[in-house]
Design a protein around this nucleic acid. Structure first.
Lengths: 236, 236
DNA sequence: TATAATAAGTGTTGTAAATACATTTATTTA
DNA sequence: TAAATAAATGTATTTACAACACTTATTATA
C-alpha cells in the first residue's frame, strides 16, 4: 500500500496527571525528568507511545512504570500540540489523568524516578506545558466529580464520611454542611456502613464505610448531586 | 540540542465532526475521501497537521477548507490512536466537533469535496474509525448541551422557540412540555423577543428571538437546566 | 471521678424549583 | 363562518434543596 508521502511525522507522547489524597490534601505525583532537555526538573510522568500500543494502553503502561499499579481509574484528558511545547523537537502529548489510592502507591513504590507527591496548591515549576496540563486536569476533576461518583477512587477501601467530605471540600475549596452532605451521600446507596470505627482522627470515632462495589460499578456514569449548586456553579 | 533518537514518529491528523441543524433534524457534514486508501468512501473532513500549527488551528483550517467558515464553535473531542486505525500507515487523529449554522454553510459552499449533509440517524458507513468518532461526538454534544447553552450555535440569527425546542428534542430524542420548556428558556434571559414572526411553519406564526450576545458571551460556561431530569439521566 | 473538650451523628422546617396539566388566541383555508 | 392548525400562556402540586442546633461518645484533665 502506498505511504502518505510528503507529510511530516511527529513524536507522540503520553503524560499522566496522577492524583492522590492523603486524608487532608489533594496531591499530584511528580518525577524528576531523566532525559534532556530540562533534565532534573520536575515533570509529569510520561513517555513516548510505542509502535503497537494505543493511547489508553500507553497511559496505563506509564502509570504502571511509576506506581506499579494496574486497573486504576484513568481517563483521557486532552491532546496538547503546540508546535513549540517541546523545544527539542516537535512532540505532541496526549494527557491522561489517574485517580489512585495513595496508600496503594506507597506499597508499590518504584524509586527509579525520584517521584514525590506535591499538594495541588503547591506545584513547583514544571517542564514544558505540564503546568498547563495540571491546571486542565484539576479543572476536569472538579467538573467531573461534581456530577459523577469518581472521588471514591482516591480513597482506601474503608473510609469515613468526614474523610470523604474533606476530600470534596478540598477539591471544591469550600465547606459543606455535614448534615446535608451526609444525607446526600447516604441517599446514593453507594456506601455500606461498617461496624468498626476510625478512632485516629477523633475521640468519638467515625464509622467506616465501604463502597457497595456492585452498585458503584453499575452507576459510574450516573449523575450525582452532592455539591450545593449556588456555591460552585454560576447557574443561569 | 540533541534529538530524541530511537523513538518513532507518527503521522498526526485532525478530523472534524461538523454538526448542523436544518430545522428538523441534526445533521453531519461528510465528504467523499479524495486520497487512498479508501478513496471515494464517505469520511469526515480531515487533514494532516502542518509543521507550524497546533491542533486548534489545524481544526479551524480544515473546517474553513470545507465550509469557508471561520470563528465558529469548535472544541477538541478526543485523540484517537489505535495502531491500526489507518491501515496504510500509523496515523493518530485528534478529533474536533464544530457547531455551525447550516444556512451560513450553504452560502459558503466549496464543492471541491463532494460534501453532503447526513442526518445523524442515517450516517453511511465511514472510513477508518470515523463512525466511532461520530458516535463520541454525538454523545459529547448531548452531554455538553444538557448543561451549557451551546445549541444556539446551530441556529440562525433569528429563530423561534418551537424551532429551538425541536432541536433539543432531536438531540435528546424525546419530547418536552412546551410550557415548561418556554419558561426555562425565558428564565435564562439569553433571548430577546423580536417584533416579527416566522410564518413559514404555522398559520399563527411564532415570534422570532435573537440571542442577547452580551449575556450569551458572559454565560457560555454557566450551567443550564433545560432538560427535565428523569427523562434523560439516570440519577443516583 | 467529675468536668471540659472534641468531633461525630442525627431531624425538621421553610423555600425554591420542577413538573404536570388545559384553555385561549391568531391565522388560514374550505 | 366554521374548522383546522399551531402558538402562547397560567396555576396548583410535588419534590428537592438548603438552612439550621442539639445530643452523643470518648478522652483528657482537674
Amino acid at each position: 500500500m502506498p505511504k502518505y508521502q510528503k507529510q511530516f511525522r511527529i513524536l507522540v507522547a503520553v503524560d499522566c496527571i496522577i492524583f492522590g489524597f492523603d486524608g487532608t490534601e489533594l496531591k499530584i505525583l511528580l518525577i524528576k525528568r531523566d532525559l534532556e532537555p530540562e533534565k532534573g526538573k520536575w515533570s509529569l510522568m510520561g513517555g513516548f507511545i510505542t509502535e503497537k500500543e494505543n493511547f489508553d494502553r500507553g497511559g496505563a503502561r506509564i502509570l504502571k512504570q511509576l506506581t506499579g499499579l494496574e486497573g486504576v481509574y484513568m481517563e483521557q484528558l486532552h491532546a496538547f500540540g503546540h508546535p513549540d511545547r517541546d523545544p527539542n523537537e516537535r512532540t505532541i502529548s496526549v494527557a491522561y489523568f489517574a485517580l489512585i489510592d495513595i496508600h496503594q502507591y506507597e506499597n508499590q513504590l518504584s524509586s527509579d524516578y525520584h517521584a514525590e507527591w506535591f499538594p495541588v496548591k503547591k506545584i513547583p515549576k514544571l517542564v514544558f506545558d505540564h503546568t498547563n496540563m495540571v491546571a486542565k486536569a484539576r479543572e476536569r476533576l472538579r467538573y467531573k466529580s461534581a456530577f459523577h461518583p469518581i472521588l471514591f477512587e482516591l480513597l482506601p477501601e474503608k473510609f469515613t464520611l468526614p474523610q470523604l467530605q474533606s476530600l470534596y471540600e478540598g477539591i471544591f475549596d469550600t465547606e459543606f454542611d455535614k448534615r446535608n452532605f451526609s444525607r446526600k451521600i447516604q441517599s446514593t446507596k453507594l456506601l455500606v456502613k461498617q461496624k468498626d470505627k476510625d478512632k485516629e482522627s477523633s475521640k468519638k470515632g467515625a464509622y467506616y464505610y465501604k463502597l457497595d462495589k456492585r452498585r458503584y460499578a453499575a452507576n459510574l456514569h450516573a449523575f450525582l448531586n452532592i455539591i450545593p449548586n449556588p456555591v460552585i456553579f454560576n447557574r443561569l
